[in-house]
Design a protein around this nucleic acid. Sequence first.
DNA 1: TGGTTTTTGAGGTACGTAAATCAGAAAATG
DNA 2: CATTTTCTGATTTACGTACCTCAAAAACCA
Lengths: 341, 341
Amino acid sequence: MKPTVYDIAAEAGVSLATVDRVLNDRPGVRQPTRERVRAAIEKLGFVRDVAAANLAKSRVYPLTFILPNNDNSFMQALRAEVEAARLRGPTERTAISVVTVPAFDTEALVSALELPLAEKSAGIAVVAVDDSSVRRAVDRLEEEGIPVVTLVSDLAESRRTHFAGVDNEAAGRTAAGLMGRFLYGQEGAIAVVAGSLKVRDHRQRLDGFMAGLAADCPGLTVLPVLEGLDEPARVHGLVSELLKDRPDLLGLYSLGAGNRGLIRALAERQEKTRLPVVVHELTEHTRAALKDGLIDIVLNQDAGHEVRSAIRVLKARADGQGVIAAQERIRLDIFLKDNLP
Amino acid sequence: MKPTVYDIAAEAGVSLATVDRVLNDRPGVRQPTRERVRAAIEKLGFVRDVAAANLAKSRVYPLTFILPNNDNSFMQALRAEVEAARLRGPTERTAISVVTVPAFDTEALVSALELPLAEKSAGIAVVAVDDSSVRRAVDRLEEEGIPVVTLVSDLAESRRTHFAGVDNEAAGRTAAGLMGRFLYGQEGAIAVVAGSLKVRDHRQRLDGFMAGLAADCPGLTVLPVLEGLDEPARVHGLVSELLKDRPDLLGLYSLGAGNRGLIRALAERQEKTRLPVVVHELTEHTRAALKDGLIDIVLNQDAGHEVRSAIRVLKARADGQGVIAAQERIRLDIFLKDNLP
DNA sequence: TGGTTTTTGAGGTACGTAAATCAGAAAATG
DNA sequence: CATTTTCTGATTTACGTACCTCAAAAACCA
């Protein structure tokens, strides 16, 4: 039988009230008594029944998600997943509020983090913009005891509790590893399309890609990075031109969004020579292009996993509980047309 | 505020006892009254608080895991994960029993499924051997209302509730897709090493691999499959001989266990020509070989995820609850040296 | 109609913990 | 020593549901 608070009280020779005071860090217990209770807890291996405790407290976890208003498929999916989690709230004792802020707007993000709503939360999940003012705002929240989880995009050197997202540098290296193996022994140029190198995840992916290529593929060089601003039309223009100008191109790595434009450009391509293409984020469009053989690999992060993981971590942290680390690692999904879900 | 049983009683104009009888399918309520209560539940959007219900019932989920006594790294890891889950039992209201049976022993497996222990379980997870007698035993349990989840290896055409494992045919196709891209345009032979083609997962991986290769890689042929019985020494012998006899070999796909032997054979290899290698299951050895560049790709299934998913599904089924489908999909992990966890 | 059976209501206890109150004991203070 | 302050114990209520008993009401049958 699992020990209960009654067993602890009996073992320590104190009353239920005292056990409760110790368990919930309430004042009014002398140090020696505290120790006795702690010893009893230790000895009996007592673990508080979180479900019962939450029931007694009528606990709900008010969580705040701060999300950018980006218009690309991935962010849309992310917002949809947060909304789905919000609807599950009653069952999971969460009360999720969503704050949407303009994309890449540091000031707006900081304001959102300073909102009274945020400060009343049991935890905050935020798609971070890597900036010192944001870092300060996050650190302040953590200092006040409000756990912050960065979602999708991390905040370097900050006190945030956890990062629920993929390792973007590893993603870039992986893209390079695949590309290098696809083009084994060949010499020539590869093109990279990014959204904007001002965004941390894109920068990291690029760094990883360059490092991986430099380390393992001496024959391959990278053309100047094209910045498509994650806009399909712009990406289409850039890639069309590229394909026209460089018929000798060996491969293509798109590490940002707006791949709809890239796919269109590929479909319009005249040369029927081989052109390995690696892109990020599985969407309706990239999935279709994968099936059609226009692209070879999609690297993906599962928005649903990220959201659910963020919630689990925040709830656990709010209770001072631990998490199963392996379960909270967000994996880089690698999709070929053969293993699509 | 979330509606409670009291709200339902008030709304339906009946007593708490009647609501309880309806909710828990107890007899003694006339049809019209039942309907009224159901309508009230519907109208107020009542959802039973599972935590409170479990508390009241002092519910524990007695679960049984039936695992083979295979000695390879993957099965060891699987057993370790089940053990870890067993230790988490008190916190998660589960009481996990583990039954170990001789590997590939159909009769032993059927006996285990007929054990009184199994029949008293709230759910059973089993590494299935694909056999009609096993199927019958599983179907019988499902008919008696005991949910069965197949783990790692599925049972075709059976009534099992769920399969917690990867799609092995897709895994084989993926291996072919990668291999084909690595060897683009080349013509020659690829070798396949399996454990035993009597095992369903291995058979499926092979089928997927052959199909993928046939569809996309006209120039590549497959040598007769080597069966290493998942034993490192035997695999070492087979692969050493292969490498000696076929210096023109283009690639190697190992879809079973015992890769320690394969890695040793690769390390001893004399020719320094390129030889792309794809293997299954991330272990201490395959991880090291990946880092050293002896192998290129490791396809993996996460044993921890499989076990935790099986438990979630069984608990949910025991309560007649739904699951988040996307969360329970076991993904095929693709590891290069660049994205190792 | 009377009697039987079925349905319903009322109320209580339990699960394991939180949180509050109040009284009494022990310790610290002057 | 008296007094204040700080601890501790005892007890109660609550959270939302399950499950039990007993009595009352309603429906059914002959």
